[in-house]
Design a protein around this nucleic acid. Sequence first.
DNA 1: ACCTGAACACCGTTCAAGT
DNA 2: ACCTGAACACCGTTCAAGT
Lengths: 224, 224
Amino acid sequence: MSRNSAGLSRQRIVEEALRIIDGQGLRRLTMRRLGDALEVEAMAVYHHFPLGKEQLFDAIVEYVTDATPRRPAEVDDDEEELVEEPAEEPPPPWDARIGRWAHEYRARLLRHAGALPLLIHRRPDTPAALRSREDHVAAFREAGLSGPAVADAAAALESYVFGAALTQVRSESPHGAAEPETLERLFQRAGDAATDFDSRFLAGLDALILGHTGVRPAHTAAPA
Amino acid sequence: MSRNSAGLSRQRIVEEALRIIDGQGLRRLTMRRLGDALEVEAMAVYHHFPLGKEQLFDAIVEYVTDATPRRPAEVDDDEEELVEEPAEEPPPPWDARIGRWAHEYRARLLRHAGALPLLIHRRPDTPAALRSREDHVAAFREAGLSGPAVADAAAALESYVFGAALTQVRSESPHGAAEPETLERLFQRAGDAATDFDSRFLAGLDALILGHTGVRPAHTAAPA
DNA sequence: ACCTGAACACCGTTCAAGT
DNA sequence: ACCTGAACACCGTTCAAGT
């Protein structure tokens, strides 16, 4: 932290970039504007992301996708260190684990809606994502599935959660062609009562699990 | 078609733009490059899209999203004209209609994978999209649903199809963080046989319909 | 190691002008 | 009506230089 060090770090840069994206939109995220927000010359960012904006985008996607909050006091480090996990409680039932993941992942996607276009052309192969998928496989096995049905169910789960978040963002977007009637109004005309996004997401999640396992889940509601 | 008219039209511009997107990626779609591909100065595009690139993007999204092929011989026109539909065959069963739409929509999204980031922040309120949704509502009613469950099922269907296509594109993308293990390999380790994307999509679609309606659909397979 | 400042090629868009 | 050509503000990135 000498005088001419602006205290930049990859994490601080990513968080400031996300603040710009969430506040002004992805197209307004500019290296120069990012530098301004960090109170630094734009070119300073290149010292932390030598491959430029594309590498910054990769880091943003990883940040949005992965739940893992970093310990803030530590120096930024590229290597994954194994951390001892002292907790030894019995894991929740399989449907609770799936429900919990679904709500958390959806919330993360919705919180950074402006960054979602970046996700589409980047592999979701982060360690955290793979750990989640391993747990989905285990959960559907506990639900009684076996063989290819396990992978089918896990893939469908991920597709649904991802698609539901993106569909919601889409329908809330300002842009659009000439709009004679909106999706919501069509649904209101069709159904009796309108359902809000949260309830609809849960209804679809439960139906999906029921369709794959034959069991109507009982522990998938969002936490209070 | 006088000598100094290059024969430009909104449709021709959109199709050329999509060719660039599909071939080189969205980031390489540039007004100047687009002009080159059309053998015209870049600024000629602004005569057909006075609001600039954003309006061009809107048109691209509409083109990708809507199935409706335009009659090629007609002059480009903004107004929707009512066309008499002489066909009077009985409509297919509800599950066949849903399956047909799901496969077609997915195919359109996969065909123009490079343009998908544009979809996320644009309302899906085109006339064709609304017509599809009306038919989904009708189909789920025919399957026995009523009340809010109808809208829940229709919304879940759209979320799943959209999410499955995007998830596939994502997993096929070159980009990514350090990749110790890919999703496919994880699934292969978990399940016995690997399922390809098409079969997995159909399995998830059937399970979703089963979960919402209680009926395992029999007519959702892709056409040969 | 970390940041600055000038420079370069390229971009979206405006505007006056041509036909 | 349809397209051109020059111009302007802005962008991502390189590179040599500072400390």
